[in-house]
Structures are given as C-alpha cells and as structure tokens.
Write a protein that binds this DNA or RNA. Structure first.
Lengths: 244, 244
DNA sequence: CCAAAAGTGTTCCTTTTACACCCATGG
DNA sequence: CCATGGGTGTAAAAGGAACACTTTTGG
C-alpha cells in the first residue's frame, strides 16, 4: 500500500474507510458428526434481528489480527484455536450504512477463519445478544454478504484440512485415530478415504506417536491414544504434504 | 465486517483508514529464463527514491479490484493477465505517515498478485516515474513492508502454478510444450520434473489440444503448437489437480 | 553428417485403492 | 458368544522417476 500521486487527489477524492473484521468460527461436534459455525444475532441496524458472523470494527491502535482475537474472546472461551486471515471484501455498496447520508465512509471487511475445539469452547452469553452454533447445512440467510464469506471460508477449511495439520489444533492433546478420522469425515464428507488407508498413511508419516495409553468408549476394542508430535512434523512444514 | 455495539465507541474510538492496493506484477521472460517483478520508483515521501510495488489509494466509489486494475493499466499495457487478491496487511505503524501529526488515520494495504505475458506487456513510462522489471533475485530493499509482501506473493505464485492453470493465462494463444515447460522451470526451479514426464502428464489430462501447426525456432525438430482448451479443463475445476 | 530440439517408450519402483481378515472389549 | 469398533495385511491398479531412444529440423 501507500502514498501515491497526491496531485490527482483533487479530481479523484480518496475514500475513507471503517474497517471491520468478521470471523468464521468453525468447530466440529464429533459426537453428532456435525460441522458447526458460530453465529450471532444482530442487535442493531442494519440487519437487526438477522443472524450474522461475529464481527467488530477495528479500534485505534489495534491490528487486524488483534481485532479478530478480540471478537473471538468476547464470544467464546477457548484454549486452543487456529486462526488465519481469509479474504478482504471491500466493494462499495456492501454495507447499507454507506448510503448517501453517511457521505463517503465505506465499510470494508477483512474476514478471518478460525477453528476451535468444540468440547472446550464455552459460549459467552451476555444475556442480550443471541449466539449459537449452527450446523453448516442449516445456516439461514445472514446479514450483509456473510453467506458468501461463509461459503468461501468453508472452502478454505476443506483445503486446510487436506494439506496442513490444522486438525491437531482442535483435537484434544490425546486422541484416537478414530477421532481424527471422524473429524476429517465430517468436514470433507464420507468417502474421502477409507479408515484403514487413512490410518496407514498417517502413521507412516511418523508425526503421530502412540502413547501406549488406551481408551475405551462403550463397546469395541479399546483404542490407542496418540499425540501429535510437532517436532517430528517440522520437516513437512511447507511441503506439499497430503493428509488424504 | 459491519455494525457492532456502538455503545462502546466512546471508550474505544474506532480507527479511520485509508485503503491502499499494492500489486505484485509477475512476468516470465522466457528468452532469458527469468522471473520478473514490476517495481516503481517512489516520487514522494515517505520512502522517496526507493523502489516499491506499484500501488494506489482507493478512490471514492471504487472497488478494491478496480483499484488494482487501475494501477496495472497505468503502468503497463497488456491484453492477458491473471489477477487475484493476496493478503491484507493492516497492522498499525506499517506506514510512517501514521505518525502523531496525522492523527489516527491508518494505512492498510490490500495486496493483489498478477501474472502478465512478458512479450506483450508494454511498460508505460510517464517520463517522471521510474519503472522497471526486476529479476526476482535482484530485487533491492523496497519501501514499506513490500519485501515481505513480495515474498508472500512469490510463494503464492509457485502454489498457483502447481495446482491451477494460471500458466495458460500468460502464454500466447498457441504455444509449444517446450514453452510451457520452460515457464514452469523458471518459476519452480530446475528439477521439478523432467521434460518427458511433464509432457506425458499434461497430455494425458486432455485439455491441451494439438493444433497440428508446427513452429520452428532455429535448430531442432519443429514443435507442435498447442492450445489450452478451457472446455476440456472444466471438469478439473476445483479438483486437487496437480500439474507437476 | 552432426548438433539440437521435439517427441516416444520402457523399466523400475512407490503409492493408492479396495478390500478381507484378525483382535479386544462390553453386554 | 456376538455385536462393535480397533487394527493389520495384501493383491491389483495406478502413478511417478529416470533414462534410453527415435524423429526432424538447421547448418
């Protein structure tokens, strides 16, 4: 970015912006095999009483990422999370507040996409704002262009799962290969790979270490608990690794 | 983006932004096997007389993408190009103009990454601004955080080449498989695949059609001219296709 | 005829896919 | 003892890597 020919400024006035950050917060409910996204009910105009992605306007001295973390921490309490910038939506007319009276202040949205651990994510209800996890297929019509943003974010989530170890950011410290497989299945859909092949590939890569501990959940043979070994993963960083 | 609790505005004033768009414009000089990036010499403060990525501030009523195209068309004349949004850099203190006197106006940069056809890209020299293609390895220290942005863009370019058909956006309508291979080689580096394997894979995919025409460049057997068949490529859209 | 570039084919090896089958536990 | 999920193995097919070889041109 940055300083251009000021001479042309007179004939082509610059736009003034408010910058918003919107978060797509995903989590996976492994008990019900559902991919969830966090929505909040808007309390004020425009789009009052419509569901929307949790967002905020950037404050003085605050970085974009800081703003993204701020929203997150206002809505949920969580220990582990993955967060990355998604895309910037900035065309004119995407926010009704830009209408004539507000005289050339434009609203631009930098969207972030997050993945949190469902089991430990505690929603913060402030008694005023509606807030809820929505299964992805049941998301209603949202405020602004948020449906579009969400669609884009879902795409990104699927890509990330395939070639980066985001899954381990949202699994418990110790997990079974069944847990891992189920997470992949609910996000990527059935049939991306069968369990035994998935299992074999992951184990061969060598960054999952068997802790020896076993866990038993109802019927069936107890499963080994694994841990993601970040050290062992390091060599794969930035490589075109494929998890599926 | 969009409207949040206005009640908190008093204690936490919002930031006002100017939004800039910076372009990383790549091209490949196949005659010299070099990957080039377009730089312009800054004419005003800050960073006067430093090379930088071509950029502009967004004008009233202009979308981000429009601004990106505007820069491009001010700097080069070109028919074919590929353009996509890269990343948004928006931390405070990335632009010296944010300093005390300018009173909370922040400069945010939405970067775009473009690939143009070198042979037909005609630089527009306005007699004032320096403008030049730089081989990637020879890029000097740039203004702002532009070296960082460039690094990120180069990464993206390599990824794009591997799993999407961007190459065909910058090759002539008719091209030889040698041309294609050379483009991949200069961007990805020697040894990403040998020619005959590269060739076999691409042809098997079936979206390159042999026009029957031949071209002869100096010594050696004349090469067939191929055309990229967008129709035939359609089924691969969004698939995890690999070109190398 | 030779060098240079285009184009074809073959061999070896690794990975992927689709299964079948064994193991350990709760009821 | 059997249903349930965990875990192992294997055979066939596909894909990748390396390299040898043929073809067609200019000089």
């Amino acid at each position: 970015m940055a300083g251009r020919s000021q001479k042309k400024t007179t004939s082509h006035p610059l736009e003034d912006f408010k910058v918003g950050v919107d978060n797509i917060i995903f989590s996976v409910d492994t008990t019900q095999n559902r991919l969830l996204v966090l929505l909040v009910m808007r309390q004020e105009e425009p789009f009052r009483d419509r569901w929307s992605l949790p967002g905020t306007l950037v404050r003085q001295g605050e970085s974009l990422e800081e703003a993204a973390y701020r929203i997150l921490s206002e809505k949920i309490r969580v220990n582990n999370l993955y967060l990355e910038q998604l895309y910037t939506f900035g065309g004119p007319h995407r926010d009704p507040r830009e209408s004539p009276e507000s005289y050339h202040v434009r609203y631009l949205s930098v969207s972030y996409f997050a993945l949190v651990r469902f089991e430990e994510a505690e929603l913060i209800a402030d008694g005023v704002t509606g807030i809820a996890w929505y299964p992805l297929e049941q998301v209603p019509q949202l405020a602004f262009d948020h449906n579009q943003i969400l669609k884009y974010g879902y795409q990104r989530l699927r890509n990330k799962l395939e070639y980066s170890p985001v899954a381990f950011e949202v699994l418990p410290e110790l997990f079974t290969l069944g847990d891992l497989y189920q997470l992949y299945t609910t996000v990527l859909g059935e049939g991306f790979s069968d369990y035994s092949n998935f299992r074999a590939r992951l184990l061969k890569l060598g960054f999952l270490c068997d802790t020896g501990k076993k866990t038993s959940r109802g019927a069936g043979r107890p499963a080994s608990l694994y841990r993601f070994d970040a050290e062992a993963f390091a060599p794969f960083k930035d490589k075109p690794l494929v998890f599926v």
